[in-house]
Design a protein around this nucleic acid. Structure first.
Lengths: 350, 350
DNA sequence: TCGCCTTCAAGAATCGTTTCATGATTGGCT
DNA sequence: AGCCAATCATGAAACGATTCTTGAAGGCGA
């Protein structure tokens, strides 16, 4: 590349200095004006000239310089579990829209079910130069220490997703699965289902999943109903494989709540593999309520989260932290609802 | 760790200066050593001390400062059409892995089928501070001017996806749909299909889509086969709606090639809506070959792109540009292949 | 012993922007 | 007239790294 050291050559990026020169003012004046800083009252004419110059030259601030000086990086990090899960991409695109209107970039990383990687990325993100971090974590409790460090380091942080044990020093936005699970349990029971199964994440250590615990409670309060909890990974084929032996049993469950909408597709597929009809032989319920679920060949009943509301709240939390609010950690729980579609229905024999 | 050398308070980020101080060297020495710059021969002992200090203090360079000084931003932009399309997210996650190992962040934006927005984002990305841009574009020809500007501005740029008219001054990585479409046409014809339909993007201006043109040629070379081209948007429900009237006709097509795997799901759903069986009454073929397609209730026949290879090549192109290679624009086409699964089969009556 | 080269490290300029503190006008008021 | 506030604009010091240039030791041959 033919570097031209002196003067703004044709291929050179236009600097604030160039704008200032063209407008006949000093760089700091131009800076003040372009940033619409409130305390300085430049004359109408000067403002006009500076904006005109910036426009004419097609000025774009050098973000690195801005970041270095002001500490504002104009980018926020999003940590998701898995980009191949439509839930995360749906939410990611909502976040993308939200922060774009606020002038931020979204840097996306995914941890792909690896807890060590999750920890590393979480740590990285906070040490990296971003203005804030939105992170889906598998278990907020597991990252207590990281969160404490972040809180200490002053990196705005909002954790999304699974609640965990104990208090954490960061804002939390999460779904409350209780209502949705209760509705689903009731609806399925009313449809004659008695043998329930629920998929849970592949067990991490000895800790029991939270959703199975809630669902267990729901199910056990229903006449003659039983629940078995199965574990599988987050990929669609893992759910398919995990269900295969279960569906081969004569006393197989007649209703399954999957890990999420994606794995619900795997469950449906496993039913087909086993020669079972959905919902005739097996009712399948997803979790998340991604848009795609409504358009599947057998549309998916699901326990839906209020995505838009959660995203809006998370962004609100994060932005307030970025603005410097220093309240106590906030926590927002959003109730889920059961949406009955074609994949669930009367139990066999009803 | 009671490491409190001096100065840096508890909430303060550790700077290179702190590392240098602790190691008892000057900042530039520390910089040279940590960056393993070749021309400087620091003594073994000094190197040791500097690395130890960096480790002990948990030093992370301030990327803004690095970027400002060196012009390396350590991030690359990825422009995709739609984060809700599993194809793009699959590819995005592949890109994410690839660039992560190279030490880059991925900034993702999506244009959501809006051509104006696509242009704006493309322009933005190039003016933004990234080391390079990977962009899925709807039609490379439509962005000729932007590409020329980028080439002039020296922003490394690789365009992905749809080929278009004419030569463009950027590297191009794209699928060659011809083989896959030919295989699909042949396979479907052998299965007795005669009335084909193909979904194409909602027409932009008067230009005919490229894939329909290729497929038209394939189909017309087959005995008694006809093709009709339909247009729809990229969302799953748009395909579903677009197919509804077509499938209601008595002379409806018996085989449909969708816009992509996502819309193929919508087509399958439309078939169900119309009381048709897949593949009994209607064969459905997707395009892309996303992982999920193999695990759908009716697994999806599809024209698959070699994702990994394409991603690797695109990254290779981009990195070589970032390193300063200034060759003529390169162009790589990757042949697609037809993967027959359950969603396609003998035509009705065969 | 002197000078020179080699080896190592430090000094200082620089990137483009923000922001604090300072300076130059003007004009209203007594 | 003289003074003090406003009002508007500038000078210059950061921010944290890289990199070019200069300098101080130590080792060697002459």
């Amino acid at each position: 590349m033919s570097g031209k050291p002196t003067g703004p050559g044709p291929g050179k990026r236009v600097r604030l200095k160039d704008v200032a020169e063209r407008a006949g003012v000093a760089v700091n004046t131009a800076s003040t004006i372009l940033n619409r800083r409130p305390n300085s009252w430049a004359s109408e004419a000067t403002v006009e000239r500076v904006f005109a110059a910036a426009e004419a030259l097609g000025y774009r601030p050098n973000r690195a310089a801005v970041a270095l000086q002001s500490g504002r990086f104009q980018s926020i990090g999003l940590l998701v579990a898995d980009l191949n899960n439509p839930y995360f991409t749906h939410v990611a695109s909502l976040f993308g829209e939200a922060v774009e209107t606020l002038g931020y970039d979204l840097v996306i990383e995914s941890w792909r079910t690896d807890l060590e990687r999750e920890k590393k990325l979480l740590q990285d993100f906070a040490e990296r130069n971003v203005d804030g971090v939105l992170a889906f974590v598998s278990d907020v409790g597991a990252h207590h220490e990281i969160f404490r460090n972040q809180a200490a380091a002053g990196v705005p942080f909002v954790a999304l997703g699974m609640p965990g044990a104990g208090e954490v020093p960061v804002d939390l936005v999460m779904p409350d699965f209780a209502p949705g699970l209760a509705e689903a349990a009731a609806a399925l029971h009313a449809d004659g289902h008695r043998r329930f199964a629920m998929l849970d994440a592949r067990s991490r250590g000895q800790r029991a999943g939270r959703r199975p615990a809630i669902f267990e409670e729901n199910v056990s309060s229903l006449d003659g109903a039983t629940l078995e909890t199965l574990h599988c990974g987050p990929a669609i084929d893992e759910a398919r494989q995990a269900m295969a032996p279960v569906l081969a049993r004569p006393d197989r469950p007649t209703a399954v709540v999957a890990l999420n909408d994606l794995t619900a597709i795997g469950v449906m597929r496993a039913a087909i593999d086993a020669g079972l009809k959905v919902p005739g032989d097996l009712s399948v319920v997803g979790i998340d309520g991604v848009p795609m679920a409504a358009h599947l060949p057998v549309s998916l009943s699901t326990i839906a989260q209020p995505h838009a509301g959660m995203v809006a709240r998370a962004v609100e939390f994060l932005m307030s932290r970025i603005e410097g609010i220093d309240d106590a950690p906030r926590r927002a729980e959003f109730p889920t609802t059961f949406i009955a579609r074609e994949s669930s229905g009367p139990a066999p024999g009803n």
